[in-house]
Design a protein around this nucleic acid. Sequence first.
DNA 1: AGTCGCGTTGCATGTACTGCAACGGTCGTT
DNA 2: AACGACCGTTGCAGTACATGCAACGCGACT
Lengths: 255, 255
Amino acid sequence: MSQTVDRALSILPLLARGPADLGTVAAELDVHKSTALRLLRTLHEHGLVHRQRDQRYRLGARLFTLAQEAVANLDVREVAHAHLMALNESCGHTVHLAVYEEREVLYIDKVESRYPVRMYSRVGKPVPITVAAVAKLLLADLPEAERRALAERLDYPQYTPRSTPDAAAFLRELATVREQGWATDLGGHEESINCVGAPIKGPDGRVVAAMSVSAPNVVVSAEELLTLLPHVRRTADAISREYAGTTPPKEAATG
Amino acid sequence: MSQTVDRALSILPLLARGPADLGTVAAELDVHKSTALRLLRTLHEHGLVHRQRDQRYRLGARLFTLAQEAVANLDVREVAHAHLMALNESCGHTVHLAVYEEREVLYIDKVESRYPVRMYSRVGKPVPITVAAVAKLLLADLPEAERRALAERLDYPQYTPRSTPDAAAFLRELATVREQGWATDLGGHEESINCVGAPIKGPDGRVVAAMSVSAPNVVVSAEELLTLLPHVRRTADAISREYAGTTPPKEAATG
DNA sequence: AGTCGCGTTGCATGTACTGCAACGGTCGTT
DNA sequence: AACGACCGTTGCAGTACATGCAACGCGACT
């Protein structure tokens, strides 16, 4: 809505692809060099971009600090962390915590597997939204209209033969998930990786986050992993209760 | 330099302190509500701020993604990680990796101690710049003029009696560090915590990052920790060599 | 030494940002 | 249930401010 700011912010994802010099930035924004310069300078003053010795621009450290503070505001994460650690202690597998925001699902915490074979993922990375167990849990709770609209607009990449094929199938899956109160991803993203997840609910009953346990076939079979379901659900419920306790009753905080 | 962008970006640190509504933001920026609205909308479209259910604004998830991608561009981190893990495996203590950028030093990687008593720190958090071993290493390598100017401008908080007292002492310390090629922090930040660190150098010999091992007194004494120095230096040198190998010879990348 | 490329600066033009005032919805109150 | 207060939102006129141009300075490469 604000042209200047819009242009300035467009520089960030551009630099996320790697360092760039002034000319490149100006060309990509389709503005004059002097314009790009002033925008970059402003970003620089705020620490969002950094100028390296060869004069090219990179994303800056302040982004780190901000992201850090952003996550600090997500109270669920604080509450959940200890529970996730405990779950990891007892089962040994990778544990994830994720939230939904602005048509994206992303991991906000992770406890690494104690097994040598680990799943690749990273806190802050968007989650494959059509297949991940945590994504299903979070989307299943969206208001009907929003859920339907989102499902229609998504891409359905066929990571594996078991990936969700299309919007219709996805919506059916979400209905099931909402009804049963838990979700799985059985090789829908990576052929050999399975996940079981459960929702974390706020005091108003709405899903504020989702957690899952993931393990590769080579460590435990899908059936064995499913035996962890009660444990996962108990953990999620425990987090929900503690979260309800710490959250000011009226505050409808997302995360 | 660009008023509009400047104002828009000022919103981010403001929201980092916690969610805020439109009126608050407008008041803090000292602009009209409608102006604040348009800025917030633009930030929103780019995913940098998120609107929660109570209509208040929070920092958004895209910040995470960007920070994530920013760090992915720091090649030192990629190279260093395995070495840091190995060092942690062998000694068990907390291992940190840090870089200098825009008058700040910050942790970009960390391997947690295997001992129950752990040092508090967080990736992305600014480092106490006048006392931390990694900060000394990074600042010691700055060009004379910049180093001196920075030292004069810093605050010297007395965390403990052994904290660096003033600019003169700090500059002397940096000279020593530069000469000996390693640094310590013996209770200068937290009374009971000691660190030993060594620099990681780029192909041109300049310090691109610094690493350190930290442990509380209750686990090992300062003397014991110092016996790890050769090990730490060997690790830092190994990273330097590998980094020199992977870095295009001409690229003067900061991180 | 000369030329090319890139970042930088000052300035005139006009665009798009600003603040105002009025509207509409929601919540809390009487 | 009706009223009032509050907050977010919209359209608009004026003008501050962002834009692009052209010229300069600097360093690298030939």
